[in-house]
Design a protein around this nucleic acid. Sequence first.
RNA 1: GGAGAGGUGUCUGAGUGGUCGAAAGAGCACGCCUGGAAAGUGUGUAUACGCCAAAAGUGUAUCGAGGGUUCGAAUCCCUCCCUCUCCGCCA
Length: 404
Amino acid sequence: MKNFKQLDLVDEIISLDDQRRSTQTNMDNIAAEANSAAKQIGDFMRNGKKEEAEVLKAKTGTWKEDIKNFGEQLGAIEEALQQKLVLLPNLPHHTVPVGLTPDDNEIVLEHGDKPVLADNAMPHWELAAKYNLIDFELGVKITGAGFPVYKNKGAKLQRALINYFIDEAEKAGYSEVVVPLLVNEASGFGTGQLPDKEGQMYFVGLDNLFLIPTAEVPITNLYRDVILKADEVPVKNCGYTPCFRREAGSYGAHVRGLNRLHQFDKVEIVQVEHPDKSYETLEKMSLHVQGLLQKLGLPYRVLRLCGGDMGFASALTYDMETWSAAQQRWLEVSSVSNFETFQSNRLKLRFRNAEGKTQLAHTLNGSALALPRIVATLLENNQTENGIKVPEVLVPYTKFDWIN
RNA sequence: GGAGAGGUGUCUGAGUGGUCGAAAGAGCACGCCUGGAAAGUGUGUAUACGCCAAAAGUGUAUCGAGGGUUCGAAUCCCUCCCUCUCCGCCA
């Protein structure tokens, strides 16, 4: 169960839906009468039967009135219904653990050995300063806290990771897209950020646009109001974007360095899938993310989020965390979710099924991967007396194998 | 930012008050034709919601969005949004 305590809400929704249906039936019946009368009037006029036409015309007044009234009622009911419907979180998958806090998350697996560091090992923010990789103060000057400036090999490492992740995603069959970083309200609604997480996004008031908190928003919204042909499913996209999050109210020791930023880089994978295959696909996406972590040589664990810790829109979420050896804690670096029809219902994203009928598709997405905490653990876990060893898979991208 | 043009189905594109959910063509699907294909030919080809146990069927709505005029609107009027062209500015 998600942390959902409004069971009355469901009853209200059902009752509103009943009202909606009966009101529409009434309105449709009257409209049908009025329409056929209008046709008859047309006939009469053409055949010169003016009196008959006038008689019929006189009767249309009350219909018009009734249609208008029912229409207003229907509009009000639909609006009320929509307002309630939007408050309904997604239904958790049956494998989602019951629970309210992160402590109730299920540890699915743990992979790799936690490195044992020397006594004088440093957390990544000290390493970043020592090797002149990241300048947090400079970011404060030009923007504010949480907007770091990457320099030298730190900057190169960012680009290397982005390109590496994109290449790996393409190898796995995802086709790359470059998308807008500002989205409109409809897009925010489509993927479920609005109205739920309004305060999480930066808002450009002058133009009524939101800075994206994740590439999920623009990429998934590519398929808003789309009916896919049967052979176009699944859709597999990947994309790199910076992500912007206000992170209002989260301050303290756990947000030092790269642990929590207002702007960060991420490669996202997104799929639009047939409902019968979406959970199989979720596992594959999880394996793709795990593969990246393995190739980077990072110890990680996979969590199955409990109902209370899961997002509003998700039916099942896996979080991947890497072990940050200097901080001695797990850092979330990816979140892979199946939204089933929650997003597609809002997006009106459908496909044509075997019977040729339109059906809501399932949407999924995952970080593959989010950079800052990957950088943090890479720096910390790979530190030696001689500098920081770059993972082999990245060397073709960085063109250097040591940071020193 | 200034001036103009325009938004119709998967696409092109006709339609200036009734017989228009919408001509025609293209595309697509299925059939015929063919040794096979092309060509040709025939049929079909929007979405949502409602009624119905369901299918069949049927009702309503939708020609950018919202409102108005009218017995009746793709067509007339108003407001808004968007796109394109030219000029200006500019990576």
